[in-house]
């Protein structure tokens, strides 16, 4: 692999305020937003991921690439799969890992987030993997520390490694090395409150896919100006024309907030029910970031069909996160060692 420290995760920082027409771009040595990567950056992650998928198939799926590096997961919101996926990725790269969760930490004793983060940083860690229920926290953390920061999900905002693993999973399934050029992808559900949707809209469109968002108006962001998407509320019309159907998780409290009359009505209008399964194109792929509400956004029997990629998404998550950590911390060690 070429020098993984330089290209493509580094680049000149852009002033977000200077370009109101573009997506906010900030980081140089961090992964905060898919916008930090762009098409070339995403493709580089995909390419490196290929190597780590191969590592994952070995009897001992471990390489010394990040030996001596310390990766801390700082999770201020409940998460199981993302935290485990990052920790597994770090360990397979032989990094030391530490796990910091808000409930058991000094944060619950009143220490400020900045003090907590600076304390961890002062221990000489190399990467902070940050999950927070508030949008923007990884940007703030990045401004306070010298470690590399990886956004593992911030509020409703972004979840870039989820988008990367989704891109990888689609490419793996369709066998296209070129990207997702011309692929028709429908993202269905609660886009307004979804960090997965925001990152995936950026990633899919950067790779050339045509993205359609399908949601009730109350679950769309207030403005879609500048979003490279088509909007529909007719799932039946969109399904037959979609190569990939990406279902978002519906949090049931959306009904109590009067964003929806009921979960039942959501499922009737926007769920991938058994009946709607018949409308899917023959080779259409079905994806979901998990955890799934079977019977709400997806019928139980459809989640288990062969064209459902849900378990591939989870499996690829580890390799993608290995690639991200490797590109950010790159030790220069030989992957084959």
């Amino acid at each position: 692999m070429s020098d993984p420290m330089s290209d493509p995760m580094s680049g000149p920082a852009a002033d977000p305020a200077a370009d109101p027409g573009g997506w906010p771009v900030t980081a140089t040595r961090h992964l905060l937003s898919i916008a930090d990567l762009g098409r070339d950056g995403i493709n580089e992650v995909m390419r490196v991921t290929d190597s780590f998928v191969e590592v994952g198939r070995r009897a001992i799926p471990k390489v010394p690439a990040l030996r001596g590096k310390t990766v801390v997961s700082l999770f201020c919101e409940d998460s199981t799969r993302t935290r485990l996926s990052f920790e597994t990725a770090a360990r397979r790269l032989s990094a030391d890992t530490m796990n910091f969760s808000a409930s058991s930490s000094s944060l619950s004793k009143g220490e400020s987030l900045r003090d907590t983060v600076e304390t961890i940083d002062a221990m000489g860690v190399h990467a902070l993997v940050v999950r927070h229920f508030s949008a923007g926290v990884p940007w703030q953390v990045a401004s306070w520390v010298s470690a590399a920061v990886v956004n593992a999900g911030d509020g409703w905002h972004e979840h870039p490694t989820q988008a990367l693993l989704d891109c990888y999973t689609i490419r793996e399934s369709i066998g296209a090395d070129a990207g997702l050029e011309g692929l028709r992808i429908a993202i269905v559900g609660d886009v307004k409150h979804s960090r997965v949707a925001r990152s995936n809209v950026l990633a899919f469109s950067a790779l050339g896919a045509e993205v359609t968002i399908v949601a009730p108006p109350t679950l769309l962001p207030p403005s879609l100006a500048g979003w490279p998407v088509v909007v529909s509320n007719d799932l039946d019309g969109v399904l037959p024309k979609s190569d990939v159907v990406y279902l978002l998780r519906l949090q049931t409290e959306r009904a109590t907030e009067s964003l929806l009359p009921s979960v039942r009505e959501y499922t009737a209008g926007y769920g991938l029910t058994r009946e709607r399964g018949a409308l899917l194109a023959e080779r259409a792929l079905v994806m979901h970031p998990g955890p799934m509400n079977r019977g709400v956004e997806i019928a139980a029997e459809l989640a288990g069909l062969p064209n459902s990629l849900v378990t591939r998404q989870v499996a690829n998550g580890v390799a993608v996160r290995m690639a991200v950590l490797y590109l950010l911390l790159g030790s220069g060690a030989d992957l084959g060692a």
């Binding site: 997506w23 923007g136 409703w156 960090r195 925001r198 962001p221 403005s223 100006a225 979003w227």
Partner: peptide
């Protein structure tokens, strides 16, 4: 402010 930027940034807006 609720608008283009709040929508992108995933921050709840005030219309």
């Amino acid at each position: 402010h609720e608008g283009e930027w709040s929508s992108r940034l995933g921050v709840p807006g005030i219309p």
